[in-house]
Amino acid sequence: MSTFDIVELQKADRRGLAGEAAELIREAILSGTFPPGAPLREVELAASLDVSRGSVREGLAVLEREGLVRSAWHRGTRVIDLTPRDAEEVYSVRAVLEGLASRTAVGRVDLDALGQLVEAMTEGVASGAPSADLLALDIAFHDTIYLASDNRRLIESWHALRSQVHLFQLTRIRLGHDDYRAVVVDEHREILRLLRAGNPKTVARYAEEHVHTALRALLLRLPEAPA
């Protein structure tokens, strides 16, 4: 999308308008309505969401803190570009968080809940469910592990990165659809097995490698940033 076209988005509720504006714009970004690099103009967004420009501005500030958008003086706000450097930064931080979360969750996490998510992934792959649906289960799997860590700052760190991870994984799927579907079940089933086995160091090591594997798969297909 080289120019901004007015699109119809779901109207925001009158309560908590800034938060709901952020949620609806986030959904539009993750659905591809606003692709990487697309401009996000307050006037058009306010008209589409039927809220004030102030609510949109606050909502965009939330998304900027999540790393989904970037603002620059005289250049406005845009969805982030997905460059190899961005991917390496996001996934390197995520690998550290995943290792700590998995290690801390040993003996605490709801293994049955994780098992249900893995089975839902298995059924989704077998039935040909959209890869975006599989990714939602993937994210929910990791959410469950972070919550089980009972570490507030770790959970907050994950949520600060979560939307970027979601966007990068959607890009990975778009560029390598079959690759993601081929590994999503086995990799999460292995994390579950290691959590059941109860060795914190082993599960942390595999969780980190799980992230590095995802990064390598993305970098193989992600175009180089222009000089």
Rank of each mutant, 00 (worst) to 15 (best):
M1I: 05
F4N: 10
I6R: 11
E8Q: 13
E8R: 15
L9P: 00
L9S: 03
K11R: 09
K11T: 03
D13E: 14
D13G: 14
G16I: 01
G16E: 08
L17M: 11
G19V: 03
E23N: 01
L24E: 00
A28P: 04
A28H: 02
I29W: 03
I29Y: 05
G32Q: 03
G32M: 08
G32W: 09
P35W: 08
L40K: 02
E42M: 09
V43C: 02
S48F: 07
L49D: 05
V51R: 02
S52V: 15
S55L: 13
R57G: 04
G59M: 00
A61H: 14
V62R: 13
V62M: 12
L63S: 05
W73Y: 11
R75Y: 03
T77L: 01
T77M: 01
D81H: 13
D81A: 14
T83C: 03
P84I: 05
D86M: 15
A87T: 06
E88M: 09
E89Q: 12
E89S: 07
Y91A: 02
R94V: 08
L100A: 10
A101T: 06
A101R: 05
S102P: 00
G107L: 09
V109W: 01
L111R: 06
G115V: 09
G115E: 10
L117N: 00
V118F: 03
V118L: 03
V118Y: 02
T122N: 08
G124F: 06
G124W: 03
V125M: 05
P130C: 06
P130F: 08
S131N: 07
D133L: 15
L134D: 07
L135Y: 01
L137R: 06
I139N: 01
F141M: 04
D143Y: 08
Y146A: 02
A148F: 12
A148C: 13
N151P: 01
R152W: 05
E156P: 00
E156V: 12
A160G: 12
S163W: 02
Q164L: 12
L170I: 07
H177E: 14
D178F: 04
R181V: 15
R181D: 12
R181L: 15
A182Y: 11
A182Q: 10
V183T: 14
V185Y: 03
D186H: 14
E190A: 11
L192W: 08
R196Q: 14
P200D: 04
K201L: 07
T202H: 14
Y206S: 07
E208N: 13
E209R: 10
H212Q: 13
L215Y: 11
R221Y: 02
L222V: 09
P223H: 10
P223A: 10
